[in-house]
Nucleic acid binder design. Structure first.
Lengths: 249, 249
DNA sequence: ACCTGAACACCGTTCAAGT
DNA sequence: ACCTGAACACCGTTCAAGT
């Protein structure tokens, strides 16, 4: 809401919303969401805590703005390549890496809902889906599935990285630790987890990530794929979906 | 770590880890993560804030325990039905609804990594995947993709619900509001988002959710699906994945 | 062994007072 | 119009002191 007034001559020094957001991103990258305090921020900006409130409404406004700045930058960097599928992979990986570098973005993005960051991603991915020329009714479910997958995996991956970092482990230490823990679980209760412990130790998140993207893209473009809401026979194949569950206060 | 000592006769009154976790879940359901404070909790349990620390290490321990209790309950309720695919759908919907009812579980579950809640889900979903008799090398990527999708969508759905509730909207109000906001975006910058605004207004999250599950299940069982890490030609088709990106402090 | 509750070191946010 | 910084109402957590 607050715009830069060009009245003041010395633009480099004055406190602006942009400078605050940049400093916030630095603090968030340095020490996560709990590291971002108005006191630390105002110290870094050589001002008082109250001054920030002239430019920013509150902490969640600040988090949302910082998140949006990172997402906007990432979307800007993902240029269109050869095919829609390739572009989707590139955008997905761009987000994966951005959230890996800025893990706090993962949690901040969820609460932005219809707002800027999610809409930016939706538009970018959606334009590629449109290029696939699906029936209109299938576009929403295709984009929705992809978005959920991209953000879901990216966030979990970033959380794993943070978890490891907190415990002073590097990636292979982390994989080793989890894999060992899994193989020591009760064989009666956790047969499957034990059986994939080895695969987990050797897996590569980025490769698995695009494997999943490809899997979804294949499902989207396969001829049998039908959208739930618009198909002729309504939702009868999913009749076990109790519809009353949806009614909540 | 602390076990109930059966020395004291009156078991109903004494403060136990279980009672604390139950009270925490009630507070979390009532007013979210910010509503859970040690003061409110100790008041509800008719004790002092310090007493809780005898049974619980700290707040994140408490959050993890509350999260695990909800997930364990949910997994316990999801019984095996006819086919592996149907069971996966049932487990997925069980989690979807549980996270919808307890939105705080969505954010708490991410940071549990190799620990109980994610492992419980992994085992439940994994046992069904095993029943599909995929090649060993594909099991991890199949389960990983499904898990990421299930949690990703459930969490975003819960966040949307919270967003709506905060603003005093019911589901149709929320859909209407977002849909309207989207259709008012700049047509040059957001052509796709504008074009799906109508579909968004009429979509049903639960139906779209299982549509996505079916889509992934189809991709998994289709013959062309290959695991990234074990395929003969390594990752050459994804050569645009810069491998050095992974090296981080 | 378990509980009490005051105290400590922080938070986000406000607001009279300054320029 | 913008900034200052003390003050307010909270937090999570600790710990001497009790039973």
């Amino acid at each position: 809401m607050v715009k830069k007034t060009p009245g003041r001559p010395r633009q480099g020094e004055s406190l602006t919303r942009e400078r605050i957001i940049e400093a916030a991103i630095e603090l968030l990258d340095l020490s996560g969401e709990e590291g971002l305090t108005f006191r630390a921020l105002s110290e870094r900006l050589a001002t008082g805590p109250g001054a920030i409130y002239w430019h920013i409404a509150n902490k969640s406004d600040l988090m949302a703005a910082a998140c949006d700045a990172v997402v906007a930058r990432t979307m800007h960097e993902s240029v269109i390549v050869t095919t829609p599928e390739q572009t989707i992979r590139a955008v997905a990986l761009g987000l994966f890496d951005a959230i890996d570098e800025h893990p706090w973005v993962g949690s901040a993005i969820t609460s932005s809902v219809g707002l800027s960051p999610l809409v930016r991603i939706l538009e970018h991915v959606g334009q590629q889906i449109r290029a696939l020329r699906l029936p209109d009714a299938q576009q929403w479910s295709a984009v929705g599935t992809l978005m959920a997958y991209i953000l879901g995996v990216s966030k979990q991956n970033a959380a794993n990285g943070q978890f490891a970092r907190t415990r002073g482990l590097d990636r292979s230490d982390f994989l080793e630790a989890v894999s060992t823990a899994w193989s020591e679980l009760d064989p009666k209760e956790y047969p499957f987890v034990r059986s994939v412990a080895g695969q987990f130790r050797e897996h590569d998140d980025r490769i698995d990530f695009i494997t999943g993207i490809d899997l979804i893209l294949k499902g989207i473009s396969s001829p049998g794929h039908r959208s739930g809401s618009r198909s002729k026979r309504a939702a009868t194949p999913h009749s076990f979906v109790s519809p009353d569950k949806r009614a909540s206060g």
